[in-house]
């Protein structure tokens, strides 16, 4: 039985010699990586309106989203991977929501639960309601319903897991968080007639242009391909130079810091070039 299971995995572009087929399985790192990532998506504990009641019902033992690895709701954005925007997003509330989103560690996902969070719902033209949280945050899954039943929400969560399963470490276009350099925070709106901070106009415009090009929201530049042998030589050189200057510095850490600084410099150069135009 185990043999047949292995053969299913060997269906790749890399041929496996026949005599080794019982012992070797080829699979991609993505599978195990995505499996582990999607099986521990901890949502952020916050509810906005009546959808939150259904969300609580989904978390409780009758429906129990821990069965899918959503496990436990965290009270801190720094410990959570998923933001379930459950309810009407008022103009006053969008400010803390964006702040919370910026504080979440990557990779992070947003699920718009219910009509209000997805498109404003019955309040879509209200004076104090944001018509859809996707005006400010990159939403991954929209769950319709007013409110969605616990089963509909569970279906949305399973849909999100399927999305994660389809992402690839190799294809950086659909996952913005594997590039180098710091991520750009989502501009925090300010409560006022326009709900945007005019001081952040440049960043907002840049992100809007990226969104128009259908580039991922807050995407970073892709890491440049470097020859591994050269990197190895450089690393030894770095170790040699640093041994004289400072003792006890981890060469890998030094290389990482150097890479990050380079990326920052490139980003600054790009911004300067854009500003010049």
């Amino acid at each position: 039985m185990a043999q047949t299971d292995l053969r299913a995995l060997q269906d790749t572009e890399f041929p496996v010699p026949e005599e080794l087929q019982a012992n070797i399985a080829i699979t991609s790192l993505d599978k195990i990586y995505n499996w582990s990532r999607r099986s521990s998506m901890w949502p952020l504990l916050f509810g906005l309106a009546c959808c939150a009641i259904e969300m609580i019902g989904t978390a409780a033992s009758r429906f129990d989203f821990s069965r899918f690895g959503f496990e436990v709701m965290r009270g801190s954005p720094r410990q959570s991977d998923l933001m379930i925007v459950s309810g009407t997003v008022t103009k006053k509330m969008i400010v803390p929501i964006v702040r919370l989103y910026n504080q979440m560690p990557e990779p992070k996902y947003v699920l718009a639960m219910g009509a209000c969070a997805s498109g404003g719902g019955p309040f879509k033209e209200g004076y104090n309601v944001v018509s859809g949280v996707d005006k400010y945050l990159p939403v991954d899954v929209y769950v319709p319903g007013c409110p969605p039943t616990p089963q509909a929400l569970l279906y949305g969560m399973i849909t999100l897991q399927k999305k994660i399963d389809g992402q690839s470490l190799a294809n950086l276009d659909d996952v913005p968080w594997y590039g180098v350099g710091p991520s750009e925070p989502t501009p925090v709106p300010v409560l006022g007639p326009d709900i945007i901070d005019p001081r952040q106009m440049e960043l907002i415009r840049e992100q809007a242009q990226q969104a128009a090009l259908e580039a991922p929201f807050g995407a970073r530049e892709l890491p440049a391909w470097v020859n591994p042998t050269e990197v190895a030589q450089e690393a030894t050189a770095v170790v040699e130079t640093q041994e004289g200057a400072e003792d006890g510095v981890d060469p890998a850490k030094a290389a990482r810091i150097r890479k990050r600084e380079e990326a920052m410099a490139r980003l600054a150069a790009r911004r300067a070039a854009k500003g010049g135009q």
Binding site: S118, G119, V141, Y142, A152, Y155, G156
Partner: peptide, 13 residues
């Protein structure tokens, strides 16, 4: 039918 969640609002919803 309540199983309607999807990734894109404008095209699917």
């Amino acid at each position: 039918d309540y199983e309607l969640a999807s990734y894109d609002r404008t095209s699917a919803h």
